[in-house]
């Protein structure tokens, strides 16, 4: 017990909490795109993390092989995932708009395998590292914070802010919020739902691209990297209330803190186990998500 309290008040624990916060920023960004698409199109893209994976590859190859500056490479990565988002909608979801939700989910699951397979065929199974290091911020003798993580957090928070302003101030943003509340009457408002779906899928894709840029700075890319981010992203969205962007945002930080705190006391895997168990427990208490509005 004394050991436990020692650990709790240790300076490293503070570092852990901060790292959890920084990780939360990236997870928040990850869940944002998925939530946006779900809120508007009412489909869960199981293959969301695989789109991110292809974005990471784009950035890797443009920067490492073609020598393009990493910022421009990131821009191209975002362009690629935007197009992918459009394609996912137009080629698959478009034909399943009236199908049972679970079939839509399974179809994007099929895309997951397709994208993994394509990445394997095209890029092999090696782990590839962007090799960009920004060094660390030395807060004190004991606390080092990676600049990459800080940058990721700031960018993630920034894009959440931009999206928030877009959603609350613009006509399109209002339509995006409105459609999740009443799909059927959107034509009465003059909204072309098909176009709105496409637009949202493109934005969802672009957010995946941004997430790809941030993840590429921190993690190696390989065809199966989606499996390490995908499940956690869905769970964050469900925990926050599918389609509820504010809920997803907060849930991302709960998840990231649980993971890093679990990782601090045991292995990182136990951190994940802890987060998932809390997720399952939450679902029993609040099936509609932790931050669902009572209706």
């Amino acid at each position: 017990m004394a050991e436990f309290t020692d650990a709790l008040f240790s300076i490293f624990f503070v570092e852990t909490l901060i790292n959890g916060l920084l990780l939360g920023g990236v997870l928040a960004l990850l869940s944002l795109g998925l939530n946006l698409v779900f809120g508007v199109v009412d489909v869960v893209w199981i293959c969301y993390a695989e789109i991110i994976m292809l974005g990471m590859y784009t950035i890797y190859f443009l920067h490492v092989d073609a020598g393009i500056p990493v910022i421009i490479a990131a821009g191209c990565g975002i362009a690629v995932t935007t197009i992918l988002g459009l394609l996912v909608h137009r080629i698959v979801i478009h034909y399943l708009l009236d199908a049972a939700p679970i079939n839509q989910l399974l179809a994007t699951g099929g895309l997951l395998f397709f994208l993994q397979g394509s990445a394997m065929v095209a890029f092999g199974i090696e782990f590839r590292n962007l090799g960009v290091s920004l060094g660390s911020l030395i807060v004190s003798e004991d606390i080092y914070l990676s600049w990459t993580r800080i940058l990721c957090f700031v960018l993630a928070a920034g894009s959440v802010g931009v999206l928030y302003v877009f959603l609350s101030r613009s006509y399109l943003g209002a339509a995006i919020r409105a459609i999740s509340q009443d799909r059927e009457i959107m034509p009465l408002m003059g909204v072309d739902t098909k176009k709105l779906y496409l637009l949202t899928s493109a934005i969802g894709g672009a957010l995946a691209g941004l997430a790809a840029a941030l993840l590429a700075l921190q993690y190696d890319v390989h065809p199966f990297i989606g499996l390490s981010f995908g499940p956690i992203t869905f769970m964050i969205c469900v925990m926050g209330g599918l389609g509820n962007m504010v809920g997803g945002f907060l849930a991302a930080f709960i998840f990231s803190e649980l993971i890093t705190i679990g990782g601090y006391f045991a292995d990182l895997e136990w951190g994940y186990v802890l987060a998932f168990v809390v997720f399952i427990a939450t679902m029993f208490v609040r099936p509609e998500g932790l931050f669902a509005r009572k209706s």
């Binding site: 209002a174 919020r177 409105a178 509340q181 009457i185």
Partner: peptide, 11 residues
């Protein structure tokens, strides 16, 4: 009526 219940009147 079919208002967007979770949006403000002005929205």
């Amino acid at each position: 009526r079919r208002l967007f219940a979770r949006m403000t009147v002005e929205d």
